[in-house]
Design a protein around this nucleic acid. Structure first.
Lengths: 220, 220
DNA sequence: TGTACATCAGTGAACGCGCGTTCACTGATGTAC
DNA sequence: TGTACATCAGTGAACGCGCGTTCACTGATGTAC
């Protein structure tokens, strides 16, 4: 029976090596920022002190993790990118719904957005406004996401006649449409199922239109 | 010869009735906000004092014109709506370019956006993030704009086989694509003509795809 | 037209407050021997 | 294993600053007679 090198800790809260604790505080800061963003304000309007207050540490400790708020913003973008990639991974794993493919995908996407509302609020919110460096980081994530989606469509044999460039362009349009829809989804008033189905139907139709165009697209 | 009822003023700056002067200060406040937004920050991060400083009045005077910053934001949204309507009006007046319709329209749009960069920066920036009340006001303007565009397409006889609902849906997609593109246009680094033509070509292709889909769309 | 009074856009000072950043510090965790 | 020292995440106090809002005011413009 091997000797326990380190005494096991009772409280799960404070467990871990110094490095692990530090990482956890970093995540607390990121989550704190997301929570505050979830209250419907822009990232640029958050203050360092608010964030540390929400995270439960002293303002000065912020600097142990990020040089400034922009650096935290970039961490949020990265988390957004991870979230998007997970969406594709799950789609790949589960496959697309066999009947009424598009509506099924839209409903899955809608639930995905709602379950990760804070991250999507951030991405949808800072994509157009916010600071320039963050906007560009988001654009980069978007285009990676579009490329990955294009690869998946290629692998699935959808739209086999299109060049990679055209497929990429089409996926770019799909991605911006998805992110616009995410913003709409998050602003849905609760319990207004009429508005909800209208939004979904509109979203489905828009995607249908795009894929209809794609099927008739001729590379030049 | 009629008597001059009021002594003519020498300096154009201070001219006008009290009401006119007030209106001018109001516009100064709106322009000041736009100038500050043009420096690449979000509306929610602007301060009342900054804006009045930029407008050349004392902070307290702000309250003679707006209850708070949100009310000024709504005025900005309205100005954005006016700008979009002007775009359609000019398109109606000048007609669409006869050859290479879509690329021509895109280039006209690009110039339009660049000439009114501050308003578009605001609209593109607050559309996804910002405060909820402003976001919803922008959505309303967007959908009015889409309706008007749909009417114009109907009047021009483009896509004569589509129902009004479908036309509206398609125009909605066109509008969001245009506004996404506006954000990209405004972030173009100066003098990088390569990136510029790529952006334009991508934008043209996306619109082409949408209209190709529209031509094959069957109402259900 | 001239006069006396009302209106009100803009002023300037003041208030209490939260901000970002700095600093020397504490004390648990990690490491070398 | 035990001990002595190093590291460093988080502390708490302090700073100067710009913030939003209030208030009594000023003086040009507007109005009634």
């Amino acid at each position: 029976m091997p000797v326990t090198k380190r005494a096991p800790r009772v409280e799960g809260e404070a467990a871990g090596t110094r490095g692990e604790r530090k990482e956890r505080t970093r995540l607390h800061l990121i989550e704190a920022a997301l929570v505050l963003l979830g209250q419907g304000r822009g990232f640029t309007s958050l203050s360092l002190r608010e964030i540390t207050r929400e995270a439960g540490i002293v303002p000065a400790a912020f600097y142990r993790h990020f040089r400034d708020l922009d650096e935290l913003g970039l961490a949020l973008v990265e988390m957004g990118g991870v979230t998007l990639r997970r969406l594709l991974r799950e789609a790949r794993r589960d496959g697309v719904p066999p009947t009424d493919m598009l509506r099924g995908s839209v409903l899955i996407y809608k639930r995905f957005v709602e379950e990760r509302s804070l991250v999507f609020r951030f991405i949808a919110g800072e994509r157009g406004g916010g600071s320039r460096v963050i906007r560009e980081a988001i654009r980069t994530e978007e285009s990676h996401f579009a490329s990955e989606m294009a690869q998946d469509l290629r692998a699935l044999g959808t739209l086999p006649d299109l060049s990679s460039a055209s497929l990429q362009m089409i996926c770019g349009l799909v991605v911006t449409t998805m992110l616009n829809a995410a913003s709409d989804i998050l602003d849905l008033p609760q319990g207004r199922s009429r508005q909800e189905t209208e939004l979904v139907e509109n979203f489905v139709r828009q995607l249908r239109l795009i894929f209809l165009g794609a099927r008739h697209w001729r590379d030049d």
